[in-house]
Amino acid sequence: MSTSGSIDPGAPEVAELATEVEGALLSAENVSKIFGGLVAVNDVTVAIPRKKIVSIIGPNGAGKTTFFNMLTGLYKPSRGKIVLDGADITGHRPDKIMAGGVARTFQNIRLFSTMTAVENVMVGQHARMRAGLIGSILRPPRVGREERGTREKARDMLGFVGLETKTFDELAINLSYGDQRRVEIARALASEPRLLLLDEPTAGMNPQESEVLTTFMKRLRDELDLSILLIEHDMKVVMGVSEHITVLDHGEKIAEGDPATVRANPRVIEAYLGKQG
């Protein structure tokens, strides 16, 4: 297994990376994940700057989702360290990381299908709510206000992601595919994240819908001051929206840089098209 030093051709890039990690909102430093004997992610370093959209791309099985799951705490990294805004969050529980401001969506939509759209988004605010067991039973004014506020905010959020008002109280399972994607994003946004992780959000969308989503991501960055980390297959989306791209293949980082640099990198082309000749 090669180290990151041998991947990057020049020393300056490494230095640049180090400075990036410094001021980053979230950084993964030399993280690896090993399942049994299988190395799913090997020694990957990625830094996500504030208010930027960055992407991770790579062929199927490159370890992108595994990497995501480490960032959100679903998996504990076998090696390496994850730092959120200066605090080491390696090995923290997913709900803690979520409360710390990292929200996500899933590759295969995971809405609570027997809840309505609004209820789903209300669940997203769980970490921002206070009511406990006793409070929920006695429902003092404070809890009542919180409950109403949560519901209101959920509706606002659904409006913000462009869901039609008449579908707010539909069960999630009865929503169209595109709307389910929207609700999932609204659910993540409702937690007031600083960083939004989107796992293949355009999967199953037609070009127009992808276009709308691309614009929407930029809006999120500009209006809500969000950082976004995107896993994506659709190169048009990735190249159009990302300010920085990291390429994974077989669990290793093989390239990174701005869209133009990555597009021109022979190793990236090779990873996507296979070895020629």
Binding site: F35, L38, G61, T66, L74, G91, P94
Partner: peptide
Amino acid sequence: NVATLPPQEEIRTTPV
């Protein structure tokens, strides 16, 4: 598919 299989043990809920 084993390659994408995150065993249940890896889903971390009770670190203590």
